[in-house]
Design a protein around this nucleic acid. Sequence first.
DNA 1: TGTACATCAGTGAACGCGCGTTCACTGATGTAC
DNA 2: TGTACATCAGTGAACGCGCGTTCACTGATGTAC
Lengths: 237, 237
Amino acid sequence: MSWKDQGRSERGYHHGNLKEALLQAALDLIAKKGAAGFTFADAARIAGVSPAAPYRHFRDRDELLSSIAQRGFEQFESALSQAWDDGRPDTVTAFERVGKAYLAFAREQPSFYSAMFESGLATDVNAGLQAAAERAFAVIRAAAERLAALAPSGTPRPPALMMALHIWSMSHGIASLFARGDGARRKLPMSAEELLEAEVLIYLRGLGFLTDRRPAAQEAEKNPAGPPPGGPWGRPR
Amino acid sequence: MSWKDQGRSERGYHHGNLKEALLQAALDLIAKKGAAGFTFADAARIAGVSPAAPYRHFRDRDELLSSIAQRGFEQFESALSQAWDDGRPDTVTAFERVGKAYLAFAREQPSFYSAMFESGLATDVNAGLQAAAERAFAVIRAAAERLAALAPSGTPRPPALMMALHIWSMSHGIASLFARGDGARRKLPMSAEELLEAEVLIYLRGLGFLTDRRPAAQEAEKNPAGPPPGGPWGRPR
DNA sequence: TGTACATCAGTGAACGCGCGTTCACTGATGTAC
DNA sequence: TGTACATCAGTGAACGCGCGTTCACTGATGTAC
């Protein structure tokens, strides 16, 4: 670095990785001020470039925001399918893991979560964004299909799409009410994760997949795991 | 009206009801542009007063916004308790009505709902706001208490607070994903109301309050209502 | 019933600010020959 | 290997805009006597 670099520290005329830097800056800003509070000019400032530079990479502020939402859905999809792990070791256990992964994502990536669900972006504007959102939901849906297939004989098989929508809304409800990174939410007698786990277990029992205090579905898959102590809500911490 | 009133139509120097007019204007703006998009100046413009006038009634933009949120919670509380109707004619029926009222509020008062749940207001800043929110939640909680008391003998009684949180998160999840006024959401194979109703019924059955295809809790209250046709999700439209 | 005066709820002009966006430009990089 | 040139990714100054907020002010209203 020579004396010429005074204003522009640590880099030359070209940034080299501005697009990524802007996305990262926007994430930081969203974390700090919310999806509505982030500005194009601020992102440029943080990235250390002039306010005109971002226009080389994004048509406008909205395009940057929907890029973030799309990446968010991609990472979300990845986190959920990793948690699902194709239903191993058994469907119910894997399903519970997906729920935890959902909350973990909302908590650990609040900026992505905001951009995805609270930024007011019209999903149908951007085909890539919509497709990414669809793929993420498809993970939940696929898991629900596998669960639905476990319905005890004699019981009507519930529609997997409905189950997927139920699970999604439970997760989203708990995430947005109780598991946000910003913390300034209601205090709970239990963690958001425990709350969701209990809710899902009660729901699954309501579908007949878990007989009283014993995971019937797991048995159907020959899994020797014992019953949870005290039912879904009685779990000692 | 004389020739002097040209600029200021239909009213004299004093507005007479500016505070209410500003609140209404803000609601319209939030409906149109979202909670983040509404501006103090715009509200003044719609109310037909100068941009300085609102400061006679609200310290700043945030105070107006939290006034709206507070009123929203008050109306919400009122709608929910009216739906609950002290558990008449029986607890489960009344409980279902509360769920419908929740969605109806989110759908019919999207501006209030935004201000209440999506504006990023710190609830603990304003004591009145926090208290109003608390009173609204108390309705759900009271209903959950009554439900919990119906637990079949021999079954462990579930904690009412947990049930209330579950019901709230189901309702909020469905409301914010599927039942928003802005419409630009995912298409569903059923209405948000049906989706929530099915979810709650499955959940209650999971708690043992509804025996298979028959509302046990209602029977415990000597209600002669028959079983819903086809289980919670099989309902013909 | 009338008058003086305090109080209240508006006005309108002005401010400083930061935003999004545009423009002609320029330094750096890559490539054809 | 060197040179000419096209392309790319940035600069920095400027614009018009609308915002939140302040200020001295003024018209209307209410009240004491």
